[in-house]
Amino acid sequence: MSASKIIEGMREAVAYAQGRPVPVRETVVAVPAEVDVKALRERMGLTQQAFARCFGFSVGSVRNWEQGARRPEGPARVLLKVIEKRPEAVLEALRDG
């Protein structure tokens, strides 16, 4: 990062602290509408119990999602999508926690 970007950021921070309007960047990320939990779990070769234990879900939640009785809420869907794409990253983060 260049010095001019750092100075610009500091000026914006001061302006914000003083209540003046500052330009903001907004990133909008769409939460996936559906995640096939059963297919994801089976692809990983895990039982419902093992999947729940590995990723911090309750077994009941995993069972309900797979049976269609419930649908994962936004944060769970995001986590499931990350597990789908990069399970090793999630496991590493949880191990280091």
Rank of each mutant, 00 (worst) to 15 (best):
R70H: 06
Q49L: 11
G74R: 08
V28D: 08
P75G: 07
K85R: 05
A33S: 14
P72V: 05
P32D: 13
M10L: 13
V82I: 05
K38I: 02
Q49A: 10
R63M: 05
M44W: 15
R53N: 10
P72R: 02
V35I: 15
A30P: 03
P32Q: 14
W65F: 09
E8Y: 13
A15H: 07
L80Y: 02
S58G: 12
E66A: 01
V24K: 12
K85P: 00
P72N: 03
L80I: 04
V31W: 02
K81V: 01
G74S: 12
K38N: 06
G68F: 04
V29H: 11
K5F: 00
M10Q: 14
E73N: 04
M44Y: 14
L46E: 09
R86M: 11
A76Q: 06
G56I: 13
G74P: 11
D36T: 05
Q18L: 10
I83C: 00
G56H: 11
L79G: 01
R25Q: 13
R53T: 08
F51P: 00
V59Q: 14
S61K: 07
R20I: 12
R63P: 03
M44H: 13
K38A: 10
E34F: 14
Y16G: 01
L40F: 00
G68D: 04
E66L: 02
F51C: 04
Q48N: 14
A76T: 03
A15R: 06
A15Y: 07
V31M: 11
Q49C: 02
E34W: 14
R25M: 11
G45Q: 09
P72M: 03
R71G: 10
P21N: 12
A17I: 04
E73K: 09
E8L: 15
V14E: 12
E88V: 01
E88M: 04
F55Q: 00
R11Q: 12
S58D: 12
L80E: 00
E12D: 15
R77T: 02
V29Y: 07
E34I: 06
S61L: 03
V37E: 01
G74C: 07
Q67Y: 06
E26L: 14
R70F: 05
